[in-house]
């Protein structure tokens, strides 16, 4: 089986269709395409052995290919509230930086996540966070507060967690109980944009930490592969469900590590999706669960592993 690696292609708009075709011909998948004025950014999965070839072909077009470990993941950036204390600087800068590394990030502002004793996480927030591949908690300045509130904020969260706060990494590791998957210290509540070199280095540290946690999760997934590669499922849906093309969302079908989120109403489209044939009589309903998402009225499709279905398409 070919191993697909996540890459980002950045280049001019001129002849970028050639690159898209090349990636598709090589058996890769485009996860997301951004067109920004004269520039195109393609986030895609390509076979590992063909990365050099894409690089070579992209060279005359002044295209740049780089590996981005976060492509094909949906990450929740969680802020204790949507007040001016936490937004926009810290949370938005982190979310934006993760986006540059290829992830699809959603900001989750908790209704009552602030304070030491009064912090809370409600059921809807918990379910929304659990629909992501990873949660980044952007917390504040005091070790004392993080120690008290974090057990409440992570109650019921089943996805890997990376926590950031002003105390250093070691202190965070000591005070966070039960332990989480990743820690980045030295980023607290700040009231200005990340622009100094040491602050930008911290953002790189977050990306590295998130990538490390996700790689570990990918390794676990590789032991029992999914019945269909999520990016392939996205391609099938986009090809066969006409309504997806009419959506104005930036990512109407969002690729996750173990499934996809489709931004169509669940009540109207779920039966159609369950019956949608992927290949050789195998329907989505046979190899995945089509569930209502807690995010608006979207559909979330969770792909079952091969061990459960015995089918690989």
């Amino acid at each position: 089986m070919t191993v697909l690696v996540p890459i980002t292609y950045k280049g001019g708009i001129y002849r970028h269709d050639d690159i898209i075709e090349l990636i598709e011909d090589l058996g890769g998948y485009i996860v997301q395409k951004h067109v920004l004025a004269q520039e195109v950014v393609l986030q895609s999965f390509v076979p590992r052995d063909d990365v050099e070839q894409i690089r070579r072909i992209a060279k005359p077009l002044a295209g740049e290919v780089k590996e981005s470990p976060l492509v094909g993941t949906e990450i929740a950036v969680i802020s204790p509230s949507l007040e001016i204390h936490h937004l926009p600087h810290t949370s938005c800068d982190i979310a934006e930086y993760l986006r540059q590394a290829g992830a699809k990030t959603n900001m989750v502002g908790l209704a009552r996540g602030f304070g030491k004793r009064i912090a809370n996480l409600n059921r809807e927030e918990r379910d929304v966070i659990n629909e992501h591949d990873l949660a980044v908690y952007v917390l504040g300045n005091f070790a004392e507060c993080i120690e008290h509130k974090f057990p409440v904020l992570q109650r019921g969260i089943e996805v890997p967690i990376v926590i950031t706060g002003a105390p250093d990494r070691e202190t965070l590791q000591k005070i966070v109980d039960p332990p989480v998957d990743g820690y980045v210290g030295g980023i607290g509540r700040i009231m200005h944009r990340f622009r100094r070199p040491e602050e930008l280095a911290k953002l790189d540290e977050i990306v590295a930490e998130v990538a490390r946690v996700l790689d570990a999760r990918r390794e676990v997934l590789a032991n029992d592969p999914l019945s269909i590669f999520p990016a392939r499922l996205k391609d099938v849906i986009e090809e066969k469900v006409y309504e997806v093309a009419t959506l104005t969302h930036p990512t109407p079908v969002t690729v996750q590590m173990t499934g996809v989120r489709v931004k169509l109403p669940y009540d109207d489209y779920a039966p159609e999706f369950r019956a949608l044939e992927i290949q050789d009589g195998v329907a989505i309903g046979d190899i995945a669960e089509v569930l209502p998402s807690r995010m608006r009225n979207y559909i979330i499709i969770r792909i079952k592993p091969y061990s459960e279905t015995g089918v690989m398409v």
Binding site: N141, F142, A166, D168, T171, G188, I190, M191, H192
Partner: peptide, 19 residues
């Protein structure tokens, strides 16, 4: 009482007053 937090608040206060 929290050294790291105190430094962070010095910066926050400076930024807010300036803004």
């Amino acid at each position: 009482s929290d050294g790291v937090g105190g430094e962070a608040y010095e910066r926050i206060a400076a930024d807010v007053l300036q803004d």
